[in-house]
């Protein structure tokens, strides 16, 4: 509505002090939760946890107790320990594949948007061709044939599939910045292309990249779960959140804990990631921030 636009102009005109917008308590709760997850995954080996692979036929499908916080599965393995160890697979898959996606897609996207011309045209066409493949089906097909499946292979396949998506987002974000007068100004002051990319473009693209990265990690965690559910992720008995949910399928009525805890862990992890990503995007958006 045009009148709210007027308000924005009005406020912008009079905003002089640094905007004291806060990220909010919930944001920090989410950050704390993620940090806890990461720490647990990192230190899983040193933490006083039972071995996630040790079977105990004396305590099969047990409910939560002081001894087994989340209960045990049908082989008597400690679910809490498996959820913690399982988070490793999810987090590694998420971060690893995004590392590949951003490592290749982000620089190409920035370069294409800054240089424009032939380089941009060629890269964009190539990326659209890759995008045209149905990524999920391609991923499933490749993982079905590329055996034995290891986490590394899964990371590579998902990472490569993410490149064109990252490219597109970063290119669009860079385009919006690259047409600003301050980029032209830097050029006429004699700044080199590298300097402009690093000094002028990167800081303005980074917030968008970070929030997209977080949402990307969340998507990959879900994807890994889906693949596991299809039996296409890391081979059992290695726990992953997806694997555990998959295993619970047949005995869901008997032992709902087996599905509940990995699903809850995954859900909270994803919620936190998405919330942080979204909050960061609005927080760092210079223009939107004033609204």
């Amino acid at each position: 509505m045009s009148s709210s636009l007027e308000l924005a102009e009005l406020v912008e005109e009079v905003t002089e002090e640094p905007d004291g917008r806060r990220l909010g308590v919930l944001f920090w709760v989410c950050v704390g939760w993620l940090a806890l997850n990461l720490l647990a995954a990192l230190l899983a080996n040193v933490l006083p946890l039972p071995n996630p692979l040790t079977q105990n036929y004396n305590a099969v499908n047990a409910g939560p107790s002081l001894h087994h916080l989340f209960g045990t599965d049908d082989l008597g393995r400690d679910i809490f320990s498996r959820v913690v160890f399982g988070s490793r697979v999810s987090i590694e898959a998420g971060l690893g594949s995004m590392l590949i996606g951003f490592g290749v897609g982000a620089p190409l996207g920035m370069l294409a948007a800054y240089r424009r011309g032939r380089l941009d045209q060629v890269l964009t066409v190539v990326m659209y061709v890759v995008l045209a493949f149905p990524a999920i089906i391609a991923t499933i097909a490749i993982l079905s044939f590329w055996t034995p499946r290891t986490l590394l292979k899964i990371i590579i396949v998902i990472g490569v599939a993410a490149i064109p998506l990252v490219y597109r987002v970063i290119r669009t974000a860079t385009l919006a910045v690259a047409t600003q007068d301050y980029v032209v100004a830097a050029k006429v002051q004699g700044a080199s292309d590298t300097r402009i990319l690093v000094r002028e473009l990167l800081p303005n693209v980074a917030p968008i990249a970070v929030s997209f990265l977080l949402i990307g990690v969340a998507t990959v965690v879900t994807l890994e779960g889906s693949l596991a559910f299809l039996g296409l992720s890391v081979a059992p008995p290695t726990p992953s959140w997806g694997n555990m949910i998959n295993e619970s399928r047949t005995i869901l009525q008997l032992n709902p804990w087996l599905a509940l805890f990995p699903a809850a862990a995954m859900c909270l992890f994803l919620l936190a990631l998405n919330f942080i990503g979204d909050r960061l995007r609005t927080h760092f958006d210079v223009s939107e921030g004033k609204l």
Binding site: Q180, Y182, R199, P203, N204
Partner: peptide, 8 residues
Amino acid sequence: ISSLNPRR
């Protein structure tokens, strides 16, 4: 406004 990088 657009002549200056808002983040510097």
